[in-house]
Computed example of a mutant assay.
Amino acid sequence: MADDAAALTGWLQASAQAMRCLRLARDLALPDWAIGAGFIRSLVWDRLSGYAQPTPLADIDLLYFDGTDLSPRREQEAEAWLEEQAPGLGWSVRNQARMHAGNGDLPYRNTLDAIAHWLETPTAVAARLEPDSRITLLAPYGLEDLMALRVRPTLSGERRFAAYHARMAAKNWPAIWPRVVVEKPT
């Protein structure tokens, strides 16, 4: 995992857009924040596929954890500010302290715990830019599947098979990255 983490960190640092997004997110000073999902997955799969141009992102998932403020107002304010700073990127800011309800999960303990409840392993990866500009990776299932272009369900993906299956059909990642292998739940 150390080699995979070093590679991912290097790829993030080499991407002007990724670093700009991480700096903007850090400037918001949200508690226990990270940017994850397609932001990380697409960057890695583009690199591993040898793509010269990044695959367009549908959105940028900025997550944070604040159990003291569950209203969506802070999320909306953060999205508006990010859109002013970096327009057209489809910022999606969500407080993970309230996201469990829509997924039928027990309350999440923190951002890492919330990511562990996402449906597939290569998407369950996020990054945070620390005040000293060091990058911290959050990867509850490790980086092996992400780096192997392999999609497997997490425990939540197995439990919510219909949602996992629908997501895999809708995303159709092998059409974008032909080496991606999507596994079915066991």
Rank of each mutant, 00 (worst) to 15 (best):
T123N: 14
Q96L: 15
F39H: 09
K184Y: 10
A2Q: 15
L129I: 06
E158Q: 13
D27Q: 15
M168T: 06
L106V: 11
A166H: 12
L129P: 04
D27H: 12
Y164H: 03
K184V: 11
R41L: 13
I35P: 01
V181L: 13
W33T: 04
R26V: 09
N95M: 04
P87A: 12
P185A: 06
G67L: 01
W11F: 09
L12P: 04
K171M: 06
E158W: 05
L62T: 00
T9I: 14
Y164S: 02
I115R: 02
A14K: 04
L119I: 13
R128K: 10
Y141H: 13
R179K: 14
V180D: 03
W118M: 08
D27N: 12
Y164F: 13
Q17A: 14
T136L: 13
D61A: 03
R134F: 04
L12D: 05
E75T: 00
N172Y: 00
R179I: 02
P174G: 05
E77G: 01
P131I: 13
D59M: 11
Y164I: 02
Y141W: 11
R109E: 13
E77F: 00
Q53D: 14
T123P: 06
A124Y: 02
T154N: 08
V180S: 02
A169D: 06
R41E: 08
D113P: 02
R179T: 13
K171S: 00
V182S: 07
A58D: 10
V151C: 07
L129H: 09
G38A: 14
E79S: 01
I60R: 04
V44N: 01
G102F: 07
R98H: 08
L30C: 06
L149Q: 15
N103T: 11
A14M: 02
L48N: 07
L57M: 10
S49G: 14
A18M: 06
W177F: 12
G104M: 12
A78R: 00
P72N: 11
R98F: 06
L8N: 05
R150I: 04
E79D: 00
A18T: 07
S92P: 07
R98W: 11
E130L: 15
A162D: 15
L143I: 04
A86R: 04
D61F: 06
V151I: 06
A126T: 07
A58Q: 08
G90I: 10
L30W: 00
A80G: 03
D69Q: 15
E83T: 15
A169H: 03
E84A: 14
L119W: 12
F39Y: 13
P107V: 07
A80R: 05
K171V: 05
D4E: 15
A5S: 12
P153M: 12
G50S: 09
L70C: 00
E120Q: 10
L8V: 07
R159P: 01
Y141M: 08
D69N: 05
